[in-house]
Computed example of a mutant assay.
Amino acid sequence: MPRSTNAIVRVDKFDVPATARDSFIARVGETHAILDTLDGCLENLVLEQVAGDGVFNIVTVVKWRDEAAYEAARETMRARREASGFNPQKTFAELGIRADLGNYRIVPIAAAPDD
């Protein structure tokens, strides 16, 4: 299946203490419900680690059609946070959440030839 190399994939990884999990998941759920409605949102996942030795126990992955769709969504969410007074960095500090946030592009990899 061909993959668009124009897509932007936002991958946010969080180390969330057990005491903050429920409130964090509730906030993430609200955010991702909005993202699902925005133009260009192709995939929207919230993942929780159930096995393994990783540091990050919650990961979100949102695939956007292209840079323009991502930037429009980013602006929409910035305006919503500003209007509501929500400050993610302050909330993370208060709840003891560590975050690793980044944008990625899909790396085209040629399919292996049939043996």
Rank of each mutant, 00 (worst) to 15 (best):
P2T: 07
P2N: 01
P2Y: 00
R3V: 15
R3C: 10
S4G: 11
N6G: 11
A7D: 09
A7E: 13
V9I: 14
V9Y: 00
V9T: 12
R10S: 08
V11D: 01
V11Q: 05
K13Q: 15
K13P: 09
V16C: 07
V16P: 05
T19N: 09
A20N: 09
R21H: 11
D22R: 15
S23V: 11
S23E: 14
S23A: 09
F24Y: 14
F24E: 02
F24W: 12
A26Q: 14
G29C: 01
E30S: 09
H32I: 06
I34F: 00
I34K: 07
I34A: 01
L35N: 06
L35C: 02
D36A: 15
D36S: 15
D36P: 04
T37E: 09
T37R: 04
T37K: 04
D39R: 05
C41S: 14
L42G: 08
L42F: 00
L42I: 14
N44P: 01
N44F: 03
V46Q: 04
V46D: 06
L47M: 12
E48P: 01
Q49K: 10
A51K: 06
D53G: 11
G54T: 08
V55I: 11
N57M: 04
N57K: 07
I58A: 05
I58W: 00
I58D: 06
I58E: 09
V59T: 12
T60G: 02
T60R: 07
V61M: 10
V62E: 03
V62C: 08
K63P: 02
W64C: 02
W64M: 00
W64V: 06
R65S: 01
D66N: 13
D66V: 07
D66I: 06
E67F: 07
A68H: 08
A68D: 13
A68S: 10
A68E: 11
A72P: 03
A73Q: 02
A73G: 15
A73S: 14
A73M: 03
A73T: 06
E75Q: 13
T76V: 12
M77D: 07
M77P: 07
R78K: 12
R78M: 08
R80E: 07
E82M: 07
E82V: 14
S84T: 11
N87A: 14
N87C: 09
N87L: 12
P88N: 08
Q89Y: 02
K90N: 10
T91V: 15
T91G: 04
T91R: 09
F92R: 08
F92V: 02
A93L: 12
L95R: 13
L95I: 01
I97E: 03
D100G: 08
D100R: 12
D100A: 15
L101D: 06
L101V: 15
N103E: 13
R105Y: 13
I106V: 14
V107R: 04
I109Y: 04
I109E: 06
A110H: 07
A110T: 13
A112T: 11
